[in-house]
Design a binder for these strands. Structure first.
Lengths: 323, 323
DNA sequence: CGAGTTATTCTCACAATGAGTATAAGTACG
DNA sequence: CGTACTTATACTCATTGTGAGAATAACTCG
């Protein structure tokens, strides 16, 4: 019955323990502007908006909203929890106190007047140049990263380890007969980290003048958190109508497609995309057309907000081309 | 540049703040025995294994493993993070100190010799009797819960609120022309909570002798966490080969099917299930057959562990019948 | 007006899926 | 020992979903 006492403690506030943990809230806030996905950052160093969870906060979510709005004055719409970390090694903290990082993914639209010195929107492919396959395989991947990754795999002492590494590289980057899977963002980042092909992997060590490595870096483990957010978003757009959080009130089907392509980092077959959106009844015509540049004017659509009620979870499927 | 100081603080351990938060690790550990899904609990009251995250723990995961093994001496295999909560109201804690609950889902096999007084396995449908649709719609749902839910929906003052409630009930419970979706476990629980149809919803209040409400209750918000775990598992078995974590080394296809049915709470078309499993190459023949009870003996299969390497994420789809 | 550009509608082959039927190989028991 | 019953396993078939490409419509530009 040691269990009864545990319960008692649980219900009377555990003042007997001094687990001085502190909890950080970290936000990955995404917007898509002109067909480019962007992430909200603060400071020069490249950091995600974040701050400690405080007593005044009503909930984790509201604490996060408060920090983001204080640091960037960007209003937040949709948010969802990403992951909670507490690894000691990655935090870059030598002190004894433990930090728990609770990360969130937020989706908005970039409507800021002018960019500020302390915060701004940065293209997410600046941080992950190997992730953009819209115009084919990025040169940086084929020319620099793949050779280095394979060298790293073959550089393992153990035979089993070599096989394992090659296996993981092949799976994550779509080698051999496999297809490129845009969802494996985190696995790819973790491999590059392991192979010391991203700057933050060698941060603690004294590597003289570090060689230039691909992709912009971020403080602490923020780039890993961003990778987690991108992976989640790329997965989620396939079964939930979250893309619309990133769209203006009215948009053409091509604009919608370009947004999805920007997120997925790959192209979509236009007629099939259109078919899927329409047969799922996700949008309705506004009644007007765009007077944009050249070509036949496109009808404007708006998101049918009713679908959020109709099928709380349903599914939005997106046809991604193979080529 | 207030941002530079923030960074500095971040990297030198934030001893300047006294955010005395404490973090709890909570485990939803699932096994399936004889076609019944079960959850690992401690104590009489119905509690999930849990304990505070401590300085000695290497990571959140290892801290969780330590607590579960200490409290239940049940070894843990597969685990994944579920969700992090910090709601004040639901914790049942009047004190100022904040508690963050980090929950995990674990999958194992029940191999305990005899049950102990302080811990044990309980059928998960004891807690959620309305979730088992393997033998049709549970009477408790049709006879008791649905009428009460509809009464609750119609009891709202505002017209919009009435419509909204009816809408949510219909969606979560598959009314009208909608299908029952076994994945909406959490939404259903939340609705029942809102409608005060689960015991823990009226816990704080002085409701004299509370009427008997369906389903066994749990301490604090543990039942909600269990609902989250069930929902996650029901979703996940459809695209990842996690069922095998719950299976013995060798099994027949029917045993595998019964396990999936137990988790999903609904029946599966046998030939289609078989086809799906085989064409995905998830299993291989052991070479023996079962000498079980009656009927033609079934071949024994084992999980092809190689698939975990081959497609780190791939997909295991399961055909759920509509009837 | 013709070339170029984007929008929009169809067609078609093929894979995936839900449902049902038929046959095989055992056990139980008169 | 043969018949009824039970479970295993193998096919069939209709329908839908999906990837890919062709055809047509409606504009702008010069």
């Amino acid at each position: 019955m040691q269990d009864k006492t545990t319960l008692a403690k649980k219900q009377t506030g555990r003042s007997d323990r001094n687990q001085a943990v502190c909890a950080d809230l970290i936000a990955v806030v995404i917007a898509v502007t002109n067909g480019e996905p962007r992430v909200l950052t603060i400071g020069q160093a490249g950091a995600l908006p974040s701050g400690p969870f405080e007593l005044g906060h009503r909930s984790l979510q509201s604490g996060l909203r408060a920090w983001v709005e204080r640091q960037t004055s960007q209003p937040l719409g949709y948010i969802e929890q990403l992951y909670t970390f507490a690894d000691r090694d990655r935090i870059g903290d030598e002190h004894v106190q433990r930090v728990i990082s609770i990360s969130y993914l937020g989706l908005t639209r970039e409507e800021q007047a002018e960019s500020s010195a302390v915060h701004g929107w940065r293209g997410w492919y600046d941080y992950f140049p190997w992730e953009d396959h819209r115009t084919g395989v990025p040169p940086i991947l084929a020319d620099i990263l793949m050779p280095r990754l394979l060298a790293w795999a073959d550089g393992a002492e153990d035979l089993n380890m070599r096989r394992d590494r090659r296996q993981r590289v092949a799976s994550a980057f779509g080698l051999d007969d496999r297809d490129w899977n845009e969802e494996f963002v985190l696995q790819r980042y973790e491999l590059l980290y392991e192979a010391a092909l991203v700057a933050e992997a060698t941060r603690g060590r004294d590597t003289g003048s570090p060689p230039p490595l691909p992709g912009r870096s971020m403080i602490a483990d923020h780039r890993r958190i961003l990778a987690t957010g991108i992976a989640r978003l790329r997965t989620k757009i396939k079964y939930r109508p979250v893309v619309f959080e990133l769209m203006p009130p009215a948009f053409t089907l091509l604009q919608l497609q370009r947004t999805v392509e920007a997120l997925a980092g790959r192209l979509i077959h236009k007629p099939n995309f259109r078919r899927l959106i329409e047969q799922q009844n996700l949008v309705e015509e506004v009644g007007e057309t765009t007077a944009e540049t050249v070509g036949r004017p496109a009808k404007l659509f708006r998101f049918r907000h009713a679908v959020l009620d109709e099928r709380a979870v349903a599914g939005t499927k997106l046809p991604l081309s193979r080529a």
